[in-house]
Design a protein around this nucleic acid. Structure first.
Lengths: 251, 251
DNA sequence: CTGGAATTGGCAGGTATTTGCAGGAATCTG
DNA sequence: CAGATTCCTGCAAATACCTGCCAATTCCAG
């Protein structure tokens, strides 16, 4: 195996798992420990990852707090994100937000052969992740950057957003309940999401089990505006029995 | 077998497999190793593939091209960026582009105690880096994402850009000459930069010594529109003697 | 048709890169 | 603080790479 190929695989594993262990890589790639170490050192000096004792973690240009949130329950988020990718089809225009769950979608698209898919987002982090996917065009919304959410908001964002008619919106919610629908903590973020959801043919909400039943401050969609809910554990989902919402739980 | 035919086959194999090994090609095409190497070298210099130790990989699938460019001459870029930070003062509105040299500015701002500084950029990467700086507000321009430059461009960007009146623009150039001024390779990128520079009180151009004397395809600023040029080595700077441009060289 | 220049492919050698191994140093964990 | 793991350094073998040279072929002018 060629060195760049090997390093590419390391980065890919890193991106989808959030971290890699030297020992795992030795087993998975079938080379000596030293070779892995050398690769990691090289990649680290290129700023593509950060070495830690025992392996490496993704190098984040993003602030600590954001990276930390992203690490939380990463496997569950990745599983939900993987389900979400099944809804992405060629030719679609899709809105994706910058939630830490939605951000896990991009790595799962790497293998897919996409054509003529456009994603519009207000998250620079999402835009950057998506830039590595072939066959996918990215449209970034501008605006004032909210530092801890890393999304662009403001009147400009809203106005730009209103021009899109997405086939699908994929959003992370902070709260999901029968009465309040999908809710988030930031009003500015909510405004942008709402704008997209209103104009979307279908809307897919990602919310881990801990979000179910919780209500945050700002509604982004009422229950009947949501087509699909992807969550990670089958909790008490009877809440949503009376809606025409399709609930998908990853095991 | 004729050379063009052979090279065509190499490219075909490369396309279908993503990578080729010198040894495989020797066997499959029945020519000597040297011939294969010569072909690869030729194809590589034509930009049709990228040579790596042991073979070659498709040019289009070179991952993390942006990260690689960013890594190149990183110390020199950081030194130039450090100089540039001296021009950043409290209360300013500043435009920064997404050039790999400009990107080194953000880390140097970490220690500074800034107040009421706003940076507007069309680079999501820059926006992320800047989000970590306290006392600094970030405004991100939206638009279609150019994947290998990681910047947002398009009519929206231009229109938004025209509303700003920055105190300072900090831009990286691909070429810098007395006759053509500062130039870059992408027309879309140039349009955004030009919009800002025209409305800026002052403009600071970052260009390593290898860029001096070189002329790229699109002008972003004529010599008299540029206030400061920061470069890394004292090359032949007499070129700029007759302008009122201040040249700053880092040792 | 012919001789010479230009191009192409193959060979030899020396150099550089990559990889794995062994050992000792550093780091983590209980 | 002690055992275990992980990490780094130097070294050697294998492989890959490059340079200069030569033979074969092609091309072209005379």
């Amino acid at each position: 195996m060629l060195a760049p190929e090997r390093q590419k695989q390391i980065l890919q594993k890193l991106q989808s798992r959030g971290q890699v262990l030297v020992q795992n890589l030795v087993r998975e790639l079938g080379v000596s420990e030293d070779t892995i170490r050398r690769d990691l050192k090289e990649l680290a000096s290129a700023g593509l990852l950060k070495k830690v004792h025992g392996g490496a973690i993704a190098a984040s240009t993003v602030p600590y707090a954001h990276a930390e949130r992203r690490r939380l329950n990463r496997e569950a988020k990745a599983a939900m994100a993987l389900k979400a990718t099944q809804f992405i089809q060629n030719g679609m225009l899709i809105f994706m937000d910058g939630g830490t769950t939605t951000l896990e979608v991009a790595p799962h698209l790497k293998g897919r052969s996409l054509e003529n898919v456009t994603v519009v987002t207000h998250s620079p982090v999402m835009a950057q992740s998506l830039s590595e996917i072939a066959g996918l065009e990215v449209f970034l919304l501008g605006g004032k950057l909210i530092k801890d959410l890393l999304i662009a908001v403001g009147p400009n964002s809203l106005k730009e957003a209103s021009r899109f008619r997405p086939d699908l919106s994929i959003v992370s919610a902070h709260g999901m309940s029968a009465a309040a629908g999908a809710t988030v903590e930031s009003g500015e973020d909510a405004a942008v999401k709402r704008q997209f959801i209103e104009n979307s043919a279908e809307t897919l909400v990602l919310a881990g089990h801990e979000k179910i039943g919780f209500v945050a401050s700002f509604q982004i969609a009422s229950l009947d505006e949501i087509s699909y809910l992807i969550t990670d554990e089958v909790k008490d989902l009877s809440l949503f029995n009376h809606s025409n919402l399709t609930v998908i739980a990853c095991e």
